[in-house]
C-alpha cells in the first residue's frame, strides 16, 4: 500500500516538474503569441487580462510582408526541390553503386557542413555582383542548395544502408531493373527518411539569415530579413512585431514536429552504433 502511494506521489511530482519546466522553457514563444493579440500599449506595459484583438495581424499582412513571404516560399521550396533531386540519387549511389571509397565521399559531404557561411560569402558576393545575380531568388537557392545537399546526404544515406539486402536481391531475381528496384522497393522504405530530411532542409532554409541579409537588398529579401527590420523599434510596434514573428515561426514548428524522429535517427546513425 505504502509503495503504491510512493510510486503515485513520484509520478505526480515528476509530472508537475516536467510540465512546469516545459511551460517556462517555451514561455517566450507563448508570450509572443499572446502579445500578438494585444493592443500596442498592453504589450509595452504588460497586462494579464485583455480583450484579444486581431488588429496587429490586419496591419502586418501588408504588401511588403507578402513580398517577403512569397520570396521565402519560392527560395525555400526551390532549395528543397533541388536538394532532394541532387541528394537522393547521390545517397543511393553511395550505397549501391561501385564508386571508389564511398565512405570517403560521404565524409567529404559531411565535412562541408562544418564550413561557416562567412568562409564562402566573399567570393560568392563578388561573383554574383559581377554577373548581376545579386538580390535574385536563384542566387539564394544556389547557396542554400550547396548547404542543403550535404545535410540531406548525411541524414538519408543510412536509410538506404538499412534496407535489407535480401529484399533487394529478391527483386533482382524477380526481374526488376535497377530503376524499378529503386522506385518500387527502395523508395517506399526510405520515403519517410527523405521527407523528414526535406522538412529539416525546409526549416533551416526558411530560418537562414546570413546569406539572406548579405546577398539580397530589396527584391528577394526573405522573411528573416523582413523580421530583422524590427530590431530597432523602441516599443511602439511590439504587437505587430509579435504578430509577424508568430506568422513566421508557424510553418517550421509544424514541420519540426513531424521531422523530430527521423532527425534524431539520421544525426546519430553516423556516430552512434546500435
Amino acid at each position: 500500500m505504502f509503495t503504491l502511494n510512493y510510486e503515485k506521489r513520484r509520478y505526480l511530482i515528476f509530472s508537475t516538474i516536467a510540465i512546469v519546466i516545459t511551460f517556462l522553457w517555451i514561455f517566450p514563444i507563448i508570450y509572443m503569441v499572446i502579445s500578438s493579440f494585444k493592443e500596442e500599449v498592453q504589450v509595452a506595459i504588460p497586462r494579464l487580462f485583455f480583450k484579444p484583438t486581431i488588429e496587429n495581424y490586419q496591419e502586418v499582412i501588408s504588401a511588403t510582408f507578402f513580398k517577403s513571404l512569397k520570396n521565402s516560399i519560392i527560395v525555400t521550396l526551390g532549395t528543397v526541390l533541388f536538394t532532394t533531386l541532387l541528394a537522393v540519387p547521390a545517397s543511393y549511389a553511395l550505397v549501391y553503386s561501385k564508386v571508389r571509397s564511398p565512405n570517403g565521399i560521404y565524409f567529404w559531404f559531411v565535412s562541408t557542413t562544418f564550413l561557416p557561411a562567412i568562409a564562402v560569402i566573399m567570393p560568392v558576393f563578388i561573383l554574383f555582383q559581377k554577373i548581376r545575380m545579386i538580390d535574385s531568388h536563384i542566387a539564394l537557392i544556389l547557396l542554400y542548395t550547396g548547404a542543403g545537399v550535404p545535410m540531406m546526404i548525411w541524414l538519408i544515406t543510412n536509410f538506404f544502408k538499412e534496407i535489407p539486402s535480401d529484399i533487394v536481391e529478391a527483386t533482382k531475381i524477380d526481374g526488376c531493373n535497377r530503376w524499378q528496384t529503386f522506385y518500387l522497393v527502395m523508395l517506399p522504405l526510405v520515403r519517410n527518411g527523405i521527407v523528414s530530411a526535406a522538412f529539416l532542409v525546409f526549416i533551416i532554409t526558411w530560418n537562414e539569415f546570413f546569406f539572406a541579409i548579405t546577398i539580397t537588398y530589396t527584391e528577394s529579401t526573405t522573411l528573416a530579413v523582413y523580421m530583422s527590420k524590427y530590431m530597432t523599434q523602441q516599443g511602439y510596434f511590439w504587437g505587430k512585431m509579435s504578430a509577424t514573428g508568430t506568422l513566421i515561426v508557424m510553418i517550421p514548428i509544424v514541420l519540426g514536429f513531424s521531422a523530430q524522429k527521423a532527425l534524431v535517427r539520421g544525426l546519430t546513425s553516423g556516430s552512434v552504433k546500435g
Partner: peptide, 10 residues
C-alpha cells in the same frame, strides 16, 4: 525550430 531573428528580437 524557431528562426533566430525572431528569437533574438522577442
Amino acid at each position: 525550430f524557431v528562426m533566430d531573428c525572431v528569437v533574438g528580437i522577442v
